[in-house]
Design a protein around this nucleic acid. Structure first.
Lengths: 182, 182
DNA sequence: AATCCGGTATAACGATCACTGTACTTTTTG
DNA sequence: CAAAAAGTACAGTGATCGTTATACCGGATT
């Protein structure tokens, strides 16, 4: 476990809990048990650190979308929400960090916003591909968009209404929709 | 139009476009055409200004939820999403300002977070009451929660996928759900 | 043995932050 | 008209921000 990893872990936790702008470099280095000088030897500036945190999260969530068990259409929809509930409970109990980044950096047309957009479309591409064998081709885009919207809504609702209930509601909505648009 | 209103309008725009922590007092007073001294005669501190902005938004959106046209169950669901689409396009094209506040102030157990929670439950109460005449009592809580989740998801998806498409998808999801759980 | 590399310690840079003291002018109001 | 209220001008507070300079340490590589 290098110091670079310690810094990444601490930064991810603090950025997510307090917000990007509200988290100073000093707080990160203290939580990571190191010094500003070391941090800036691994990351050119704060934005680079933010990007690294977003990238680490992106890879882990993409992995989750790739690996939840396959099956028929309905069981895959349920599996997707079950996996996302697990993710929300363990890694994302206070909403989506990309939505958070979009709010805090939305004015800027920089690499951070580019990464947010890329992440969301990566997820949609994975879902589309994994569902493609079990859904009619004409219905695939609208189902993917519905699932994306529902995950977004469940993640945003979870902090206030509880994760289990939010994701269960989202799952029921998705199954109703899929059944009607068979 | 008092200076206090000018300050509120400028603060709402800048907080929403750039984020709360990223927006300095100096930027607000410049946009409002006044001075820091005047701002602090109307608002004790920055948090009080944030609260005033959240309150102004709350009242306007509650008004919207109260006044969209009534009708039978399905037409009210459609009306709710149509009204919210209009709101998103004109006042909220970059996501929900309360979700934004929750991310930036979530660590703190203060009046800002209290107001966020109060806003969300106020909206749900209005929707529940307005739908109560047209939905079976047993199905009312779950439909309200589904609508809340869908509005949240559509608002969060709108900046990336387009407002019309996001709210149309949310509406279709809601109608499928309501039909299946009649 | 010499050199590089990851990391540490300390201190400081200029900029910006939220916020205020003081004094003056304009507008509103009784 | 007088008094209170609202707004302006300007400078400056201490604190914190992201970032860097300088110098030193220990271990692995060559």
């Amino acid at each position: 476990m290098s110091k670079q990893d310690d810094i990444l872990v601490a930064a991810e936790r603090l950025f997510y809990e307090q917000g990007f702008h509200a988290t100073g470099i000093d707080a990160i280095v203290e939580a990571a048990g190191t010094t500003p000088r070391t941090l800036y030897k691994h990351f050119n500036n704060k934005d680079a650190l933010v990007l690294a945190v977003l990238k680490a999260r992106d890879e882990r969530y993409c992995d989750l979308c790739e690996t939840f068990p396959a099956g028929d259409r309905n069981s895959m929809i349920s599996g997707f929400f079950r996996a996302s509930l697990h993710w929300a409970q363990h890694y994302s109990p206070r909403g989506c960090i990309y939505i958070q980044a979009q709010h805090e950096y939305g004015r800027i047309n920089g690499p951070i916003m580019d990464y947010v957009r890329a992440h969301k479309s990566r997820i949609m591409a994975i879902i589309t591909r994994r569902l493609s064998a079990h859904v009619h081709r004409d219905r695939l885009p609208e189902l993917t968009e519905a699932l994306s919207l529902l995950i977004e809504g469940a993640t945003a609702s979870a902090p206030l209404h509880g994760a289990e209930e939010s994701f269960r509601t989202a799952e029921r909505l998705a199954l109703s929709f899929a059944a009607e648009n068979a």
